[in-house]
Deep mutational scan, measured.
Amino acid sequence: SAEDNLGPLPENWEMAYTENGEVYFIDHNTKTTSWLDPRCLNKQQK
């Protein structure tokens, strides 16, 4: 699965689903949400 390739979410991040079944990500560090997987963003920065 995609999660196996990317590994676990960063600390204090949570994956959630909208009512429509779309995946989004919650950053409890900054109390924000994102459509972008933080694991993908980390890979792009390196």
Rank of each mutant, 00 (worst) to 15 (best):
P8W: 04
H28K: 09
T18D: 06
T18A: 11
N5V: 10
P8E: 08
P38G: 00
T33F: 01
N29L: 11
T30R: 08
C40E: 15
L9W: 05
P10N: 02
N5M: 08
N42V: 12
T33M: 04
M15E: 09
N42H: 12
N12H: 08
T33D: 01
K31V: 04
L9D: 02
W35A: 04
T30K: 08
K31G: 10
C40W: 10
I26Q: 05
K46S: 09
W13H: 05
T18H: 06
N5K: 12
N20H: 14
W13K: 02
W35R: 04
C40S: 15
Y17F: 12
G21D: 10
D37Q: 03
D37S: 03
T30M: 06
E3D: 12
Y17D: 05
L41T: 15
Q45D: 15
N20E: 14
Y24R: 01
A16H: 05
K43P: 14
S34N: 02
K31D: 03
N20Q: 12
T30V: 05
G7P: 10
L9C: 03
I26D: 01
W35G: 03
L36C: 08
W35F: 14
L6S: 11
P38T: 01
N5H: 09
L9N: 01
E22Q: 11
K46A: 07
Q45T: 14
Q45W: 07
E11R: 14
F25G: 01
V23R: 15
E3I: 14
Q44T: 15
S1D: 06
H28Y: 05
M15S: 07
W35I: 04
R39E: 02
R39M: 02
D4C: 05
Q45Y: 12
L6N: 10
E3R: 08
N5A: 10
H28F: 03
P10Q: 03
L6Y: 13
R39P: 01
L6I: 09
S1N: 04
E14A: 08
L9F: 07
T30G: 06
E22F: 03
N42L: 13
W13N: 02
G21I: 01
G21C: 06
L9V: 04
S1C: 09
W13Q: 09
G21K: 15
N29A: 13
V23D: 05
K46M: 08
G21A: 10
T32N: 05
E3M: 04
N29Y: 07
H28P: 03
T32L: 10
